[in-house]
Design a protein around this nucleic acid. Structure first.
Lengths: 190, 190
DNA sequence: AGCCTTCCCTAACATACATCAAGCACATTA
DNA sequence: TAATGTGCTTGATGTATGTTAGGGAAGGCT
C-alpha cells in the first residue's frame, strides 16, 4: 500500500530512504465503505486523500437538489474538496465512496511542515495542481465545443478505469447529458 | 496607474509604504496596441500582466484552425498563459489586445524574490489563484448544465464591463455558441 | 463621396439532444 | 416464489440550437 504512493510520487521527484520514511510518517490510513461520506458540506477540509484502492466521487447539490458530479477518483488519484482545502473555506461538496475504498490521508498542516523540511515535495504538489488546472481547462473546452458522442469517447480514452466501474447514470451526470442519450451513444459501439 | 494596482492588492492584504514601493519597483509598464500579440504559442512565459486600462483576450487555435477564447481581461484583471507561467512549460495560447492597452508586467523571478522578502504577497497571489480555480469550476458546471440563454445572462451579470466592449461574436465564441444563437437571445431582451 | 470591411441581424431549414413513457434484466427482500 | 427496486434500454415526440444564406448599418480607407 505504501509502496504505491511512493511510486506515484517518484514518477516526479527522486526520494532517498529517509525522505520516503518522513513522508510516510505523515500519512494516515483510512477505510471507507460504499455509500459512506468522506466529506460533506459546511465542514472544514483539513486533508486531501490518495486513493490506494476503491472508487469515489465528488459532487454538489444545486438549489433544486440536483446532483452534479465534479470528479471521480480511482486508484492512484487524489480527492478532496480542493477549493476548501486550498483556500481554507468551508466545504461545498460531498465526497462519497462508490466502492469500499482504502485511502491515505495527508493533513494540510503536516504538508506545510513537509514543504519546509523537504522542499522538493512542494514541486510534486505544485505540478499535481498545475495538471489539475490544465485538465479543468480541457474539460471546459470539451463541454463548450464538442457534442455528446465526442465527449463520451474522450472520457473513455482518458479514464478507461472509471468507465468500467462507475454506473452509467453517474457518467452521464458527469458529462452533463441524460442517461438516455448516453445509452444511445453506447449502443452505436456494439 | 500605480495607485490602481496598489488599491487592487490592498483589498486583500495591508501594505506599509516601504512594502508598496518594493512591490512597485518590480513592475514594468507595457503599452500594447489593438490587435498586437502579448503572448504567442511555443514561447516561454516568464510574466503575468495586470491590466491598468484596455481589453485583451486569451485564445488557442485547435487542429482545424478554429479559435477558442479562454479568457477576457479588462481593467483590474490579470492575464497571461497561466498554465505556462505556473508550470514553466511553453505557451499554447495567444494573448491579444482587443483595444489599445496599458499593462503592468510582473516577472516570475521577481515575484519569487518578493515572496521571500514579504511573505504576505504569497497570500495575495494564492487567493487570486484559488478564486480563478473556483471560477473555472463554475464555468464548467454552467457549460454542462445550463442552456445558452442562461449562460449569456450569467455572463452579463458576472462581466458587465466586458459585455459592453467586446464584439458579440467573441462573446459567442467564449460561450461556445454561434453568433446567430447569441443574436436570437439578445433580441429577446429588447 | 463612394467603396470596402466588419459586425450584427433575420429567416428557413436541419439536427442533436432532452423529455416523456414504457419495458426488460437483474438483484434484493419478503 | 412472488414482490419490489434499480439501472439500462428503446421509441415517439418536442425543442433548442446549429447551419446556411442573405441583407443592412456603421466605420474606415481611397
Amino acid at each position: 500500500m505504501q509502496n504505491k504512493i511512493l511510486q506515484h510520487i517518484e514518477q516526479v521527484i527522486d526520494l532517498d530512504l529517509s525522505e520516503e520514511n518522513e513522508f510516510l510518517s505523515i500519512l494516515s490510513e483510512i477505510r471507507i465503505s460504499k455509500r459512506e461520506l468522506l466529506i460533506e458540506p459546511r465542514q472544514e477540509v483539513l486533508s486531501e486523500y490518495y486513493v490506494v484502492s476503491g472508487c469515489l466521487e465528488a459532487y454538489y447539490l444545486d438549489e433544486n437538489g440536483n446532483r452534479h458530479i465534479i470528479q471521480f477518483a480511482v486508484e492512484d488519484w487524489w480527492i478532496s474538496d480542493f477549493e476548501a482545502f486550498f483556500s481554507g473555506s468551508k466545504s461545498e461538496l460531498f465526497v462519497e465512496a462508490i466502492e469500499n475504498s482504502h485511502l491515505l490521508e495527508i493533513q494540510k498542516s503536516n504538508l506545510e511542515t513537509l514543504y519546509k523540511r523537504i522542499p522538493k515535495f512542494e514541486r510534486f504538489f505544485r505540478i499535481k495542481t498545475t495538471n489539475a488546472f490544465v485538465a479543468l481547462r480541457g474539460r471546459i473546452m470539451s463541454a463548450l465545443q464538442k457534442n455528446n458522442k465526442q465527449r463520451y469517447i474522450e472520457f473513455c480514452e482518458q479514464y478507461p478505469q472509471i468507465e468500467q466501474r462507475v454506473p452509467n447514470s453517474h457518467i452521464a451526470n458527469y458529462l452533463g447529458i441524460t442517461p438516455e442519450s448516453l445509452s444511445r451513444i453506447r449502443k452505436e459501439f456494439l
